[in-house]
Every structure is written in C-alpha cells, then in structure tokens.
Amino acid sequence: MVANFEAIITENGKGIFHLFPALCKGCGLCIEKCPVDTIGWSRQLGFLGTPVVEPGHGKPCIACKKCELICPDCAILIERRK
C-alpha cells in the first residue's frame, strides 16, 4: 500500500513550496529556522486541527531547503523554480 498525500502548492521567490496538511503537525520549528522568515502560519488546518505553514510572510523564498530538512514529519517539499 502506498499512502497518498496531497500537497498545497505555493510558488514564492525561487522555490515551489509544497505543504502536506496530512503530515503537518503545526510545531512551527520551520518558521524559526527559515533564514529569510518567509514561512508563517496559514489559515489552513493540518490533521491535528492546528494551523499549517505557508511561505510569503517575509522576504521571498531562496529555496535553501532548510525547512524541508528540519521538518520532523517531512511535511515540506521544496522544488527549485526553473
């Protein structure tokens, strides 16, 4: 069985930000680690009923993938914009 997770896709700066609400627990660790502070709370809710995160709050995303690496639940996937 392969689990399917649907992503909320947001294009911001150099990155295409994929957020999987079925994985995001809303811990906020990525918000603190983002070097350009682009990540902030979203109005969407994750599977625990907590807010998920979205880009577009500070400077544009530089696609450094720090949030993808630091997410304990692998709820973030960053693709570089071509």
Binding site: L23, C27, G28, L48
Partner: peptide
C-alpha cells in the same frame, strides 16, 4: 509511508 504521520508529538 502508511504509518505516517508518525506518533510523536509536534516538534518532537
């Protein structure tokens, strides 16, 4: 993948 999201607390 089918056991994800895992059982740990947010931010664990």
């Amino acid at each position: 993948p089918e056991t994800k999201p895992h059982k740990f607390c947010p931010g664990c």
